[in-house]
Amino acid sequence: MSKTSLLCQRQLLQYMADGGFYSGQWLAEQLGVSRTAVANYLHELKQHGLEVFSVKGRGYKLAQAIQLLDATRIKHLQTAGSAQILVQHITDSTNCQLLQRLQGRHELEPGSVIVAEAQSAGRGRRGRTWYSPFGTNLYFSCYWRLEQGIPAAMGLSLAIGLAVCRLLQQYYQLDAKVKWPNDIYVNGKKLAGVLVELSGTLDAGCDVVIGIGLNVGMPEQSKQHIEQPYTDLRTESSQQVDRNLLVVELQRQVVTVLQEFNVAGFAAFIAEFNQNDLYANQPVYLMAKPSISGICRGVDKQGGIIIETSQSTEVHYGGELSLRAGG
């Protein structure tokens, strides 16, 4: 996308952000472009999941008011000494963007963050697609460095899940829980997910890219793209959600947890995880090799899931966890 197109899209959305009707002719005059160009810009945005209505005689309107990410306001909200937060319009994946910077040997300060309005190739765990509609949620990636190497990252996704829970509990008074190994749930529905990617060696320091997708206001059409139960902040909280403030507070919570993790690893988070475990003491099924059913008994000091069966107690470090059907 050219810089001109990007700028016009941003200007167009600034006019339409309140969710009111605007005629194509008026929008074209404000941007200094043709009505066809306005229609094309809106079509491109619709391709990225933004819901736009067109009504003959009234013009265009967004399905719901949106708040655009604002790099200047984000910087103003940050405390002195905080690492940079870079705001992108539409990107492939915020994790990919950070990994590309590392591969290009860009100097990154630990705690640096990239956020985007939309992702064209958002990624979840195990290669799944992360649906990333425009301007409604949070697509957030943070860089960190673990000098102890890749083995020191055991349990990191759970610790980051707890950082998200702290934010949701403290700022939105939500009873957020972590679903092992990388999801955050509220009222039995997924609200956020974590994807941790590592670059390094076993015996030397490694670079860490931590991706967080957090649902703020999922559009109605999301049901066509997501197969599991989900929810968002606007549904669960009565508070007004300021996406720019949310970015700043999420960076602060994540960096705080990473600093704690650097000192003691996941062992420092065991008690907190067990207090916020979605499936604590419930019958679960772990799809792994081999699969196992039993009672969820929390995690060990490396973040492995502890499952008590009728024969023994086992610890597993990989697989997909779910409630066991029929108890």
Rank of each mutant, 00 (worst) to 15 (best):
S2E: 15
K3R: 14
K3I: 13
C8Q: 11
C8W: 08
R10F: 10
L13H: 04
G24T: 08
Q25F: 12
Q30Y: 06
G32P: 06
S34E: 08
T36E: 11
V38K: 00
H43W: 12
G49E: 09
V55W: 06
K56I: 14
K56P: 02
Y60A: 02
K61C: 13
A65G: 11
I66F: 05
L69D: 00
L69E: 01
A71E: 14
R73H: 14
L77C: 07
T79P: 01
S82I: 04
S82L: 01
A83K: 06
A83D: 06
I85Y: 00
I90Q: 06
T94P: 04
N95T: 13
L99Y: 07
R105F: 14
H106C: 12
E107S: 14
A118P: 01
G124K: 03
R125A: 13
R125Y: 09
Y131K: 03
P133T: 10
F134C: 13
F134T: 07
C142G: 02
W144N: 02
R145L: 15
L146D: 00
P151M: 05
P151T: 03
A152E: 06
A153M: 04
S157F: 05
S157L: 05
G161D: 01
C165W: 02
Q169A: 13
Q170C: 13
Q173T: 14
A176E: 05
K177V: 07
K177I: 07
N182V: 11
V186T: 08
N187H: 14
K190V: 07
L191H: 03
L191S: 03
L198Y: 05
L198N: 06
S199G: 12
T201Y: 08
C206M: 13
C206I: 10
V208N: 01
L214D: 01
V216P: 01
V216T: 07
V216Y: 03
E220Y: 09
Q221W: 11
I226F: 06
E227M: 10
T231P: 05
L233W: 00
R234F: 09
S237W: 08
Q240V: 15
Q240D: 13
N244A: 05
L245A: 13
L246N: 07
Q251G: 00
V257G: 02
E260C: 13
A264D: 15
F269N: 02
E272Q: 15
N274H: 10
D277H: 12
D277M: 04
D277L: 10
D277R: 03
L278R: 08
Y279D: 05
Y279P: 00
P283H: 07
C296N: 15
R297D: 14
V299P: 04
D300V: 08
G303I: 09
G303Y: 06
I305L: 15
I307M: 06
E308K: 14
E314M: 10
H316Q: 12
L321S: 06
L323W: 02
R324F: 12
G326F: 08
